[in-house]
């Protein structure tokens, strides 16, 4: 099955031309301690050490950058890509970081590529317009345009790795933080978060201290009184929070406030087969669901259930509102031998 991804319904996002708003900390917090900047031609081990010292976390997968780079150095990726696009239609933090300082992202990517020995590096951008802008900046790194369909990252990865190549993604913010750490010895103390959704009056991209409560970030965007749902991480695969005193982490890319909860009504599968077209990992969710429903599932029919990347494209596309991602997880657990 050729994966097509999902065309998500467009949402009014944050206007990128407004730039990134800085949220000042209310109580006096001392500036983070800096360390010695790197020399110009520092070797891979020093770059990885700097990433560890700066405590950088890759926002695209929540992994510490130092660990990720040393793992990549062992594997040797052919291609290293900085993610300067956002997958879900509500978020624009990666694009905002790229708009603000593309040069810094490119410098960080160059350092990371040197650290893990990548032969090639690219900046994955959201649209052709962004790619044109990047060419105008003359940074010396070619652009690659990620598609509009969700999940753009996985679909782009599949496209680039089609001929057996190996590629890895780095977050744009992690790249920028690595450049900061190398140049000025600054640890990663801030992150850019998108606050959007129909529950806020002024959607905004803001730069906040890591650890700031979600409530303060939400307050900045002037939330409506009747916000029912606050979700962090992603509008498709994120999770809801009820306790707004929870901290913002480096991997929090967005806070989405909604006035209406998504409809909870479930219908039976109507056999439209859209989930199989949407899945970027080649799982056939309807087949997995049918097998699990049948009561006597045949594990041979759980195609690639273990490959599920958790993007929830199948859930977004299912007209009957079935939680197919959970079914696929259950099937994968069964296949592994445990009871799902």
């Amino acid at each position: 099955m050729i994966p097509h991804g999902v065309r998500l319904e467009p949402r009014k996002g944050v206007p990128l031309k407004n730039g990134i708003v800085r949220l000042p900390g209310p109580e006096p917090v001392s500036a983070p301690q800096t360390f010695a900047p790197l020399k110009k031609n520092a070797g891979p081990s020093r770059i990885i050490a700097a990433a560890e010292k700066a405590g950088i976390v890759d926002e695209s997968d929540g992994m510490p950058l130092g660990k990720k780079l040393s793992r990549l150095a062992r594997r040797g990726p052919g291609l290293l890509i900085a993610r300067c696009f956002d997958e879900d239609p509500c978020t624009s933090s990666a694009r905002a970081v790229f708009r603000e300082d593309a040069e810094k992202v490119a410098a960080g990517l160059k350092l990371a590529a040197r650290a893990c020995g990548a032969e090639e590096k690219r900046l994955a951008v959201a649209s052709r317009g962004e790619a044109r802008r990047l060419r105008g900046l003359r940074l010396g790194i070619p652009a690659v345009v990620a598609g509009r369909r969700y999940p753009a990252g996985i679909l782009l990865m599949r496209k680039l790795c089609r001929n057996g190549g190996r590629a890895a993604f780095l977050g744009a913010q992690a790249c920028a933080a690595l450049a900061d750490a190398a140049r000025e010895g600054k640890p990663q103390s801030e992150t850019v978060v998108t606050v959007a959704g129909d529950g806020v009056r002024r959607p905004v991209n803001c730069r906040v201290r890591i650890g700031t409560p979600v409530e303060k970030v939400l307050r900045l965007a002037k939330p409506e009184e009747d916000v029912r749902i606050a979700a962090v991480g992603s509008a498709v695969a994120g999770r809801t929070v009820r306790d707004l005193s929870l901290p913002v982490t480096a991997a929090t890319r967005c806070v989405i406030a909604l006035r209406d909860a998504p409809p909870e009504r479930r219908y039976p599968c109507i056999r439209c087969g859209r989930c199989a077209r949407a899945c970027p990992a080649g799982v056939i969710p309807w087949l997995v669901y049918r097998e699990l429903e049948s009561g006597d599932p045949d594990p041979l029919l759980f195609f690639h259930a273990g490959d599920c990347a958790g993007c929830r494209a199948c859930n977004a596309v299912c007209p009957s509102g079935i939680d197919l991602a959970a079914e696929v997880r259950r099937a994968a657990a069964r296949k592994e031998g445990g009871e799902g």
Partner: peptide, 15 residues
């Protein structure tokens, strides 16, 4: 605030 299951954006018409 309430808990809800994602996705919070949809792609297709419902049944």
């Amino acid at each position: 605030l309430r808990n809800a299951a994602p996705p919070f954006v949809r792609a297709e018409p419902t049944s």
